[in-house]
Structure formats: structure tokens, C-alpha cells
Design a protein around this nucleic acid. Sequence first.
DNA 1: GTATGATTAAAACAACTGTTTGATTTGTGT
DNA 2: ACACAAATCAAACAGTTGTTTTAATCATAC
Lengths: 221, 221
Amino acid sequence: MREDTSKNSIDTRSRILDAAESLFMEYGFDGTSMRLITGQAGVNLAAINYHFGSKELLFQEVFRRRLTDLNRRRIAVLDALEAEAGGAPLKPSRIVEAFFGEALRMAADVEGGGHTFMRLLGRTYTEPNDFVRQFLAEEYAECVDRFLAALYRALPEVERTEILWRFHFMMGAMSYAIAGTDALQLLAGKFDDEDPARLASRLMSFLLGGLRAPLADPGPA
Amino acid sequence: MREDTSKNSIDTRSRILDAAESLFMEYGFDGTSMRLITGQAGVNLAAINYHFGSKELLFQEVFRRRLTDLNRRRIAVLDALEAEAGGAPLKPSRIVEAFFGEALRMAADVEGGGHTFMRLLGRTYTEPNDFVRQFLAEEYAECVDRFLAALYRALPEVERTEILWRFHFMMGAMSYAIAGTDALQLLAGKFDDEDPARLASRLMSFLLGGLRAPLADPGPA
DNA sequence: GTATGATTAAAACAACTGTTTGATTTGTGT
DNA sequence: ACACAAATCAAACAGTTGTTTTAATCATAC
């Protein structure tokens, strides 16, 4: 009947994290109660405060658990690309593929929870809670700095502000592609879903098309 | 001291709607309490239930107030384009410009509240509350049907599924560009904001670049 | 086996949630 | 001025929120 040995407590921790990840994704931070989380995790109500301190700290830990590795992997890929190039600037498309490809790879991991997490991350971008924004900024800082620097070097003739905006647009397209699948099914009515596997290649070609688009006229009257 | 005549009640209604729009945008549906709304609106707590019936119905009315007009304008522009073309299929870029241009025009209206509303709309796409999804689907149905039909006719050689996905990506890029400005400021650190006026042209050229991008390989191994 | 610290458990805490009630005020038509 | 409906108000409703407390149980080292 019982299978927990000494890893009982770390089991409780990850059961809470898994349940919280899934519920935060579905109902948001405010829409998810402690009792809902502990109920789905099958643990006592007080376990969250005991193991994480508060609901907010649990929320942050849900992100840290996956984001740290994701951004580490992104930087590792970028390191490899730059080492291979040997000092020469990279192709912009390779940089973009590295950054968004790693995210899409995580989003494709349905059983391991990566898919759920990426949907949660996507909807969190548009929920500008102060404490979440502060936290995400710190978590992303190094990775974004590295990739922006690489893009600046790859596109020296393009204004940096323009690159920033394009990066923002790409983040938005990706987040919606993952987090807003329900919205699409909604707007478009019936939608053949033979394709979540092909999402990555579809999205990537869209992103690269947007990246390569001619710059806008500076002055629209 | 008092300036209200007979329009007292409709004044209360719109005061509530304005406060709710702004607060829902900032804190989300669950994070915004009735007392917060009525407090900022300067009306009695019971006024929301009296004038709108419930918090959910107020939420819906916040959307209906702006969305109905927005989609009506979109369809009007599309009608004009099709009348001008006289039966010939439209250029895809014109269709996209019509759909997203109207949204961006609303987002540029800061004083009138259009900007706030578009940010709220953007973050709501990723909050898949059942009752919101149902409502948005009905509100968008006719407009999306018309624009998708126009795109299908404009791009007869492209699979309809591909067009759906591109439309989804474009929606995501736009919503983030408007709703997630804070997220960008965050990730990129300092960000010159001499540009909210140029957002429209920047975004439009990105969207058209994505729309024109070559289709992805169907099979990524 | 017993002591010690870590974990779990049940119960209670005050604060806040959306909604309803009943009385009072306000506006309008006669 | 009167009557009638619309609108506002203060107060209370029952239920839920995140967190804390105190006791019980667990695992482990001596």
C-alpha cells in the first residue's frame, strides 16, 4: 500500500509542484486555492506552507524548477554555435532557432509536464503581477542578454530597438501558439489536431519570416 | 457639488465599466474584487449586482461594450475592400491589415480607454475560463469567419490549416505586443519608449513577413 | 529502545469573497 | 403635491481565502 521510503518528503514536494503546475496553468494564480492544490496532490493543506513558505513562493518554485534548466540549455546551444563559428557572427536564423527551439522541445514533452509548464509560462507573461515580473526578470536576465547580444552582432546594420521589438513579437507568437491553443480552437471552430507535432516547424518558419521582413517605415504620418 | 441630471444611472453604469476594465486588465478576473471595482468607481457595492446581475456578467459587458464595435468596423473595412475589388480575390496583406489595423487603431487610443481594453483582451486570450471562452467565441464568430473566408479565397493554393495557424500566430504576436509591454520592458531591461506610436507599423511588417514566409516542411523526422 | 528532529495531521484563525436583503433616497409623470 | 418606479445605501449573509497553531506521527542516530 505504501511505497515511500526516506524520500517521503521530497515526494510530497514534487507532488505539490506537479499539481500546482497543472492547476495554475488551468485556473491562474488567483483562481487556484491551496485546498485545490493539496487536494489534487493528496497531501495535507499545511504542507505547502511547510515546504515552500507561502503560495507565492510555491508559484515561484514551479517556475524555477523548469526555467533554470531551460535557459541553461539555451545558453549551452548558443555556446556551441558560437564555438563552432569561431568568432564569426552567427546567422540570425540559427540564433532564433536555438532560443525558440529549446522552448518548443520542452512544449512537445507532454508526459513529463513540459507542455503544461510552457502553457503556464505563456499565460503568465500577460499577467503582470509585480512579484512574478520581478522573478521572471531575474530568471531570464542572463539568457536574454546573451541572445540579444548575439542578435546584435549578427545584425549590426539593424537598429537595436528594432531587434528588441522583433524578439518581443516572436515571444508573443510562440507563447500564444502554445498557451492559446484553446483560443484558436475556439475562434476557428473545428480544427484538425493531427498537428501538434508539426507545430514547431510551422511556428519556426513563421518566426523566421517575421524576423526577415523589411523594416517598417519610421514615420506613419 | 452635483452635476448629474437624469443620466445618473447610466453614469453609474459606465463608471463601473471603466473601473472594471482598468482593474480587470491589471489584476485579472479573479484578482479583482467587487469592492475594489466599486471603490474605484465611487459607487455602492451593490451597484454591480443591481446594474449587471453578477461579476461574470459585468466582465462580459466590459468586453461587449468594445468588441462589438471593433468587429463591426473590421467587417465594414473588409466589405469596402471587397466592393472595391469587385469580385476579384483580395491581396492577403490587405486582409491582414484590415483585421489587425483596426485593433491597433483601438490600442492607440489611450485616453478613450481603447489601449486598456486591448491589453485586457490580450491577457484574456490566455485565460481559458470556460464562460469567457464561450462568450468570446460567439462575439468573434462572424468576424473571424468573414476574414478567414477572405484569406482562403486570397490564397487558394495554401492549405486552410496552414492559414489557420498563421492567423493564430499573428493574433499572438499582436496580443503580446500590446498586452505584454511590461514583459518586454522587463526582459530587455531599459527600453526607449519613444515608439508606442510606431508599434503599429513595426508589428504590421512583422506580421506580413510571417504571413509570406515559406511553408514549413511537413515532416520533421 | 529511546531520544531527537523532520514531517504530517486536524483544527482554528481573522480577513475577504460575491451576493442578497430591506430600508431609504432619488427622479419622473401626473 | 402626490404616487410610483428606479436607484442607492448600509448591513448582513454564508462560504472561501491563505496562514498559523498545536498535537501526533514519522524516520533516523545513538
